[in-house]
């Protein structure tokens, strides 16, 4: 789901940066309020976990692969803004050091994988919090939301950017194709993986460190 450079039109990149910058500004303020000696090691290790989890490419039928993100566990433990900032940091390291995801498309990737996943996951967890499997549902929904945002940005391209002969200039597959392929794969495979990671992580942390999950419980 990491959109490389050259896949989105300059206009799309500009809009996503314009949307992401103020969100990052708010997120940094929220992070400053949340960070202290107790929370910092947890947020740091969950950010590192998010980075590593994204390296586990899971092959699926149809000749593609994908991965979980780990944003939703951060979101239900420390709030969506902290999760958005933390996963953005992991994505930035991936883009700058490893070329996984572009630099011009960094804002788009952050809006999809970091923001949409964190906020939707957080809201779903809030709505279902009495249910045993709320963390799974939150992880599932967050990942699904991420794939919708990324698929929308990619699939939009052939509708808005073609050359004189009608050939797409950037990502070539249309909205219907991209939505079906990308969102479908996530609903079937990667969203359940994110759900499982969220459920296991949350249940485990609540058992051994009840203080940490008090706010969200």
């Amino acid at each position: 789901m990491h959109i490389p450079d050259g896949y989105l039109s300059p206009a799309t990149c500009a809009v996503t940066w314009a949307a992401a910058l103020p969100l990052w500004a708010v997120a940094l303020r929220k992070v400053r309020a949340k960070l202290d000696e107790t929370t910092l090691p947890y947020i740091a290790s969950l950010t590192a976990l998010s980075f590593v989890i994204m390296m586990f490419n899971i092959p699926i039928p149809g000749g593609t692969s994908g991965h979980a993100v780990g944003a939703v566990l951060l979101a239900i433990l420390f709030g969506p803004w902290v999760a958005f900032a933390a996963v953005s940091m992991a994505l930035l390291v991936q883009a700058l050091l490893f070329g996984d995801g572009g630099v011009t498309t960094f804002a788009a990737n952050a809006l999809g994988m970091a923001a949409a996943g964190s906020f939707v996951g957080y809201w779903v967890f809030g709505a279902l919090r009495r249910w045993r499997f709320a963390p799974f549902a939150a992880g599932y929904a967050g990942m699904a939301a991420s794939s919708v945002v990324i698929a929308f940005l990619l699939g939009l391209q052939p509708h808005i950017a073609v050359d004189a002969q009608g050939k797409p200039l950037y990502f070539p597959f249309d909205l219907a194709t991209t939505m079906t392929a990308l969102v479908g794969a996530h609903l079937l495979f990667f969203a359940p993986v994110e759900g499982l990671f969220t459920q296991l992580g949350y249940t485990f942390l609540r058992r051994i460190e009840p203080e940490l999950t008090k706010e969200s419980a």
Binding site: P4, D5, G6, Y7, L96, L97, G99, G102, V103, Y170
Partner: peptide, 13 residues
């Protein structure tokens, strides 16, 4: 697609 073929930008180490 032209944009993909000509994508320039960051060269990750």
């Amino acid at each position: 697609p032209e944009g993909i073929a000509k994508a320039s930008g960051w060269h990750a180490p």
